[in-house]
Amino acid sequence: MASDLEQLCTYVNEKIENIKKILLIRNLGQDPALKTTLSKIGDEIITINELLNKLELEIQYQEQTNISLKELCESLEEEFKDVEHLKEHVPVHLPQVTQSLVHKPDLDPKESVKVEEPVPQKKPPKQQRVIKEMHFITTDEFDGVPAYMKSRLTYCQINDVIKEINNAVVSKYKIIHQPKSSMSSVKRKLYQRFINEETKDTKGHHFIVEADVKEFTPLKVDKKFHVIMSILRHCQRLSEVRGGGLTRYVIT
Rank of each mutant, 00 (worst) to 15 (best):
F225A: 10
I228N: 01
K220N: 14
I25Q: 05
S100V: 13
K223R: 11
R242A: 07
S184I: 00
D108W: 00
M1D: 11
T199S: 15
E56A: 15
E17P: 00
T199H: 05
I231S: 08
E133L: 03
K172A: 08
K35I: 09
E58A: 15
K203E: 15
Y148Q: 13
I41V: 09
K110F: 00
V186I: 02
K214E: 12
E50G: 08
L94H: 08
V83R: 00
K174P: 04
R233L: 02
T154Q: 15
Q192T: 02
P91L: 13
L38P: 04
L52T: 13
I251C: 04
T202A: 14
F136Y: 05
K40V: 00
N159Y: 11
D4R: 11
I19S: 08
I131Y: 08
T10H: 01
K20G: 06
P146S: 13
D82H: 00
L28K: 09
S239K: 14
L55E: 07
E164K: 09
K123V: 01
E77K: 12
N27I: 08
I22H: 08
S112H: 06
I46F: 11
V119M: 04
N53S: 07
N166T: 01
H103D: 15
D82A: 07
L72V: 04
T138H: 02
E141M: 04
L94E: 12
S75C: 11
S100I: 12
E117F: 07
H93W: 06
Q99S: 14
E197V: 08
E117G: 05
I41Q: 11
I131G: 12
L238Y: 02
P179A: 01
T252L: 09
G29Q: 12
R26C: 02
K20E: 03
I16H: 05
Y249K: 10
Q7N: 08
L219D: 08
P105C: 02
P125H: 12
G245T: 06
P32C: 04
Q157M: 04
I67A: 10
S182R: 03
C9Y: 03
E6Y: 15
H85C: 07
Y155W: 07
S68N: 13
Q96W: 02
E164N: 11
E74G: 14
I175W: 14
I158Y: 12
P146T: 15
Y249H: 13
H93K: 14
H226M: 08
E197P: 03
N66H: 01
K172I: 03
V90N: 14
E71C: 06
M1I: 13
I45V: 15
K104G: 09
T65Y: 01
K81Y: 00
R26S: 07
L76G: 09
Q127Y: 07
L153S: 12
Q96F: 06
Y11I: 01
E63R: 05
F136E: 04
L23K: 14
K122G: 05
E164C: 07
P120A: 05
Q157I: 00
N167D: 12
E116Y: 09
E210D: 15
I25W: 03
P91W: 11
Y155T: 04
R237F: 08
E141W: 00
Y173R: 03
L76P: 06
H177I: 01
K172Q: 02
M149Q: 13
V170L: 09
V97S: 11
I158F: 10
L107W: 00
P95L: 10
L153R: 13
